[in-house]
């Protein structure tokens, strides 16, 4: 009897190892991204993912098949409103679909316990982009596809979307996966993801929003109003400035209303305006604009202009390390 139990344990161990080997030999190959380097604001652009599968399934197993739906995820700036503006389809050796289904917001991804779009953001992040104003959206094939051993097929995913209204420089994110595996963080076989080369949106509104190159100064959330809490970050490591030799960095700012009238100005070197050192010559200040500029509830701050100063207020750093102020508009779209 003991020998039987010992043999059974050994059998389970061998089976377990065999399953692991089988799993690691199945899945998707890394894909490549075909896309232009730029597109016009508010116009459609197409991105194509060239992927393929590797199906090495043990024909001797009880069920020598692998059935699943294709998952495709896309990460773009939130202002593109991709859920309303994109079509995702694919052609493959197993079949074609012109319009995959956007997974409903109400459907929970089982591993992460949040909806699929949030789960994708937790799983893949924002890649090489330096600050966050992105959303992942996840599409699923309408049909289930069954793979046998040796079913190595090519999959070309076509994503067509209208670009957002703003000028920007960004690296987009994409993933391909298998619905059967969900978005398990440890899965590297059935889920492949990649971030694109720089992509520029041209001929749109506003100054260029550069997500990928280090900025001397930035304000987050990039989409905010005067009744949000905003974070100013000054990165003195980007270039040599007149504030490179001090850790005492202060904010000096003017607030304007929609009529371009100055409604508040704070330019003092006190605890209220002092940025906290984050290390690596980076500094940060969080503030609520309405409170910081002490404007009443009826006054709307539409935009601000600002510099960073030293403790004396004589050394000033502005946009592009010049005397011109940095500018920021409070908008949501």
């Amino acid at each position: 009897m003991k020998k039987l139990i010992k043999n059974a344990r050994f059998l389970y161990l061998v089976l377990g190892v065999a399953v692991v080997i089988f799993l690691t030999q199945c899945g998707l190959n890394a894909f490549t991204i075909e896309m232009p380097s730029s597109g016009n604001a508010n116009e459609e652009t197409t991105f194509i993912l060239h992927g393929s599968t590797k199906s090495q399934i043990d024909n001797g197993s009880a069920d020598p098949t692998y059935s699943t739906r294709l998952l495709v995820g896309v990460m773009v700036p939130r202002s593109w409103n991709i859920k309303q503006n994109a079509t995702v389809g694919f052609t493959s050796g197993k079949g074609n679909e012109t319009a995959m289904t956007l997974i409903p917001m109400s459907e929970i991804e089982p591993v992460w316990g949040v909806n699929w779009h949030e789960a994708a953001k937790k799983r893949f992040g924002i890649g090489p982009n330096l600050f966050d104003d992105f959303e992942w959206v996840v599409y699923r094939s309408n049909n289930v596809y069954t793979f046998l051993n040796g079913d190595d097929i090519n999959i070309d995913v076509k994503i067509t979307t209208k670009l957002g209204p703003e000028n920007m420089l960004v690296k987009l994110g994409f993933f391909m996966g298998s619905s059967k595996e969900n978005l398990r963080p440890e899965d590297t076989d059935y889920t492949k993801f990649a971030f694109s080369n720089p992509f520029e949106v041209k001929n749109g509104t506003g100054d260029l929003i550069d997500f990928i190159n280090p900025q001397l100064s930035k304000i987050e959330p990039i989409k905010s109003l005067d009744n949000d809490i905003v974070t100013f970050t000054f990165d003195a490591g980007v270039t040599n400035t007149s504030l490179s030799n001090t850790d005492d960095v202060f904010l000096c700012a003017k607030a304007y209303d929609q009529n371009n009238v100055v409604v508040g100005e704070v330019c003092e070197q006190t605890a209220k305006t002092k940025l906290s050192a984050l290390g690596g010559k980076r500094y940060r200040l969080d503030l609520w604009p309405k409170g910081f500029f002490n404007v009443d509830a009826a006054t709307t701050i539409s935009r601000i202009e600002y510099h960073y100063t030293d403790a004396t207020g004589t050394m000033k750093v502005g946009y592009g390390n010049t005397a011109d102020p940095f500018k920021f508009s409070f908008i949501c779209q």
Partner: peptide, 9 residues
């Protein structure tokens, strides 16, 4: 969301 609806506190 006291500011933009996309920002949640």
């Amino acid at each position: 969301s006291p500011g933009c609806t996309g920002n949640t506190y």
